[in-house]
């Protein structure tokens, strides 16, 4: 019961803090985007190729792009107050619908990538810590340095070259076989095949971070007195590592993972573009190119929400991992 109360209290506090934060983010982003040259009407007109002064002015008037900046902001905030994200001039549909279409794709991609990153990172980091200073540690250190420094678009392209072009094992892009009538488990398997490469290229950078972090945290915990106590109980080295060292070492890793959720969204832009994955990242990219600021603002708003939720989740995981934290 006290656990539930603690969770409820954490959530309430998070919610209260979230409102001003999100408002600030929206307003700041709104002005930042105004600084960019051009607007959606320019791009639309440019793409049409045959636009006249009058038709562009008409477009502006239709989407409210000709009103003063502050009035546009007031309209946008007014829409937000009614839980509406506005209307996209480019796609000709409400932004909320647009995002709802793309959000699941990005969320699955991020969740799978984060899961791969944490699992693989913790396993590799544990191995590195176990063999600290010896050859397996050195080798893995080199690999983690490589993954850390190679940009994800290049890794993405190389993975496509190897696994799609040379070996032909995995599809090079998209989110599912087009026109397939698969249902149930085969459909899931089909989706999973399309997920492997994008999730891997998104994850590798974070695998490197978590591996190094796990290694450092475990080496630190390893020298603490309670680890000696655990050995004195007659536990096996594996038992000591799994039950006593790892759990303590996970605390800094969850902190980092929470902070990375926001960064991963940024990484998803690149990876989704490379793999033509229909997700939020690519939508954001297209919105920037089309100067479709309502869509972009909607995505930024949603990302900040996502980060806030992720932080709250990390707080809860912390309280579960470390009983000393819950006492706030």
């Amino acid at each position: 019961m006290p656990v539930l109360i603690r969770i409820a209290r954490t959530l309430r506090r998070t919610l209260l803090q979230a409102v001003p934060t999100i408002l600030g983010i929206v307003i700041l982003n709104f002005f930042l985007l105004q600084l960019a040259p051009g607007d959606a009407a320019d791009v639309l007109a440019g793409e049409a190729g045959s636009a006249t002064e009058e038709s562009v002015a008409a477009l502006r008037a239709r989407f409210g792009l000709d009103s003063p900046v502050l009035e546009q902001l007031a309209t946008y905030l007014g829409n937000l107050a009614q839980f509406s994200l506005g209307f996209s001039p480019r796609y000709g549909m409400p932004v909320a619908d647009l995002i709802a279409q793309r959000l699941p794709g990005t969320l699955t991609l991020m969740a799978v990538a984060l899961l791969i990153a944490i699992l693989l990172g913790v396993i590799l980091g544990s191995l590195m810590a176990t063999f600290a200073g010896r050859i397996p540690d050195r080798l893995l250190s080199v690999f983690s340095l490589l993954f850390y420094s190679i940009p994800s678009f290049w890794i993405g392209l190389m993975l496509i070259v190897l696994f799609s072009v040379k070996l032909g094992w995995l599809p090079s892009g998209g989110a599912g076989t087009i026109g397939s009538q698969l249902k149930g488990f085969p459909a899931l398997l089909d989706k999973a095949r399309y997920m492997v490469l994008p999730a891997t290229s998104l994850a590798l950078f974070y695998v490197a971070i978590y591996a190094r972090l796990t290694r450092a945290a475990m080496l630190e915990v390893k020298n603490q007195d309670f680890v000696r106590t655990a050995y004195a109980k007659g536990l096996t080295p594996f038992g000591v590592t799994a039950r006593h060292i790892l759990r303590n070492a996970l605390i800094p890793i969850t902190t980092m993972a929470g902070m990375h959720i926001g960064g991963m969204l940024g990484g998803a832009v690149v990876v989704e573009t490379v793999y033509s994955w229909p997700g939020l990242g690519r939508l954001a990219f297209e919105a920037v190119m089309g100067r479709d600021f309502t869509v972009l603002l909607g995505i930024l708003l949603l990302s900040s929400l996502l980060v806030i939720i992720a932080n709250a989740a990390v707080d809860l995981v912390h309280a579960w991992l470390d009983p000393r934290i819950g006492a706030r």
Binding site: Q224, D225, F226, R228, T229, A230, Y231, A232, K233, G234, L235, T236, H244, R247, N248, L321, D322, P323, R324
Partner: peptide, 25 residues
């Protein structure tokens, strides 16, 4: 040796503050 430790020979340490794992009951 592991079968002996904790069962036939046990040990208590100097620092009770740090000799217990902080995250387990």
């Amino acid at each position: 040796m592991r079968q002996l430790r904790g069962r036939e020979i046990a040990m208590i340490f100097q620092e009770p503050m740090t000799s217990l794992n902080p995250v387990m009951s």
